[in-house]
Amino acid sequence: MASQRSLPSAPGGAGTRYRDLLLRGGPFIALVILCLFLSMATPHFATLDNMFNITRQSAFTAILAIGQTFVILTGGIDLSVAAVAALSACVTTVLLTTPITLFGYDFGILPAPLAIAIGLGVGCACGALNGWIIARFKIPDFIATLGTMTVLRGVALIVTDGLPVPSFQSMSSGAALPSALIQAGSGSVLGIPISAIIALIVALAGFYILRYRALGRAIFAVGGNREAARVAGIDIGRTKIMAYMISGLTAAIAGLIMVGRLNSANALMADGEELRSIAAVVIGGTNLFGGEGGVIGSLVGAVIIGVLNNGLNLLNVSPFWQRIVQGLVIVLVVIFDQWRRRKTAGGN
């Protein structure tokens, strides 16, 4: 009958478990150490005001990073997130401040919920487009989203005529952004920034999908071994498209929050944020090649970037040096991550 071979049945004892926790919880531990260091280095860091400040600043990156995590888990990468955020923001603000005439019908200025819904819809559609191009034409994710990133910035320029929205003209005619949007970007409840609360809700929703829904499992499978996912009957194209749609949706949410914070949108806003979101995902411990990781790590990654920014400002580090430090942190974190993976790699 079957083999009698016995391999050790439990993976190590308590010692390995602690080490495992240390390795897995790496980003969180890094955050704690960073915070401890900064609280000692500057008295202004560990104040409630500053904490809320940081969360407000991190919210945008965090929300982008959560959608980005879905894409990276499938083994892809979404370079278009910042462009999608800008386009969604522009579309919504234009609809809120400019009367729309379409096919001879005068729609006037759209009600806020509809304009916001359309902005979110634009985000989803952009994501669907990314996913469709990648699945249909078998183009590398990097190339496809590099292309759409440029195209969507162009579309945003067309939508806004290259001007900030609301424009001086529309503002002088009494147009203003709805207070709900402003609140989402700059309001707070009991001192807690609403944008941070939204980021947390998005993260929990992302966690829920990845952990408890078929889509989440399919995303891990596709990123972990595409061929195995296919043999197990998983629709790879659909999984990819949905991951990109989620990324597009979170980008749109982030874009609208930024509008609320800046009280304005423009086609070139959030420049470079796509790379920052990728950095947050990687710092958060998600494998850049897919199949391993999660959104909570990305949330922590975004906060690490935020804390680092804030701390360097408080320490009066020149902005020139800030870039150098941030870049080094990203590389160091990935080096640590590689080392961690080697430690747990192996097999026969």
Partner: peptide
């Protein structure tokens, strides 16, 4: 576990519960 149950996901809605 996930390797074993992977085919259970086929022919199901992506939003169905694991």
């Amino acid at each position: 576990g996930p390797n074993l149950s992977l085919p259970w996901l086929s022919n199901r809605s992506p939003w169905s519960a694991l």
